[in-house]
């Protein structure tokens, strides 16, 4: 988790300074790739949490698509700046976002957070539910193929408490982690370091996962995020 956060921090200065057009272009590429992978997303949802085929390939994946096209629409006209008398009010990306998502509508829960985060210039450390993270693997492949900047999206799947606890590490320096605590947050208040970082593959940049053997538990192969 520390490595995921570090990668997301490294990517933040550049992505937070990206233009509206660059962000729109990225979201459009994600849209293209998302549409191509619809069948894989639907299958993953059925496998991970038991939604019937009709629902998984229907509303479950359509929700993600809807959040994506909505994010594109909103971003086109979003007012990042507002002049008020002698002042200019500017809206700036909050930083590296630690996103923890629940299992019930897995693609919806990830996409409704990740797309606005990317659209506003944030980078993300994503921790999908340990109960249902197959579709998050497919989403990570989609983000990768679309060219989300290295460190942009860092899924840490199936790490259970290790991943969850990792999110509670206080930021060491620089940007604070922006916690979006909803749904699958587990109480406990543990602050100790994760025992190991095996649950955080796909770390981005030039790095390699420390424990590629853990991929066996995943239905899809992780790929490195494109260098950004």
């Amino acid at each position: 988790m520390d490595r995921a956060v570090a990668a997301a921090r490294r990517a933040f200065p550049r992505w937070s300074a990206s233009t509206r057009e660059e962000r729109l272009a990225l979201l459009e590429r994600i849209l293209e790739e998302y549409q191509r992978r619809l069948p894989d997303l639907g299958d993953a949802i059925t496998a991970e949490m038991g939604a019937p085929r009709g629902l998984a390939h229907g509303f479950q994946v359509q929700l993600g698509l809807g959040h994506l096209t909505t994010a594109i629409e909103v971003l086109r006209n979003f007012a990042f700046e507002e002049a008020r008398g002698p002042s200019l009010i500017v809206k700036e990306p909050i930083g590296v976002c630690g996103l923890i998502t629940p299992w019930n509508w897995p693609v919806n829960q990830v996409t409704v957070k990740v797309f606005p985060a990317l659209a506003t210039g944030c980078t993300v450390v994503l921790k999908p539910s340990q109960e249902a993270h197959f579709s998050a693997h497919v989403l990570a492949e989609i983000f990768d193929a679309a060219g989300v900047p290295a460190g942009g999206v860092q899924p840490g799947p199936g790490a259970g408490f290790r991943g969850g606890r990792g999110h509670r590490q206080p930021p060491r320096s620089g940007h604070g982690l922006h916690h979006r605590l909803r749904g699958g947050w587990r109480p406990g208040g543990h602050r100790r370091r994760p025992r190991r970082e095996a649950g955080v593959p796909g770390i981005g940049g030039q790095e390699r996962p420390h424990h590629p053997g853990r991929r066996k538990s995943c239905p899809n192969t992780w790929r490195e995020a494109s260098p950004g």
């Binding site: 979003f78 002042s87 200019l88 009010i89 700036e92 606005p116």
Partner: peptide
């Protein structure tokens, strides 16, 4: 979107 943004005032801009 607003959840992911900080608000900064540039006063005297």
């Amino acid at each position: 979107f607003h959840e992911y943004l900080e608000i900064k005032a540039l006063v005297g801009y």
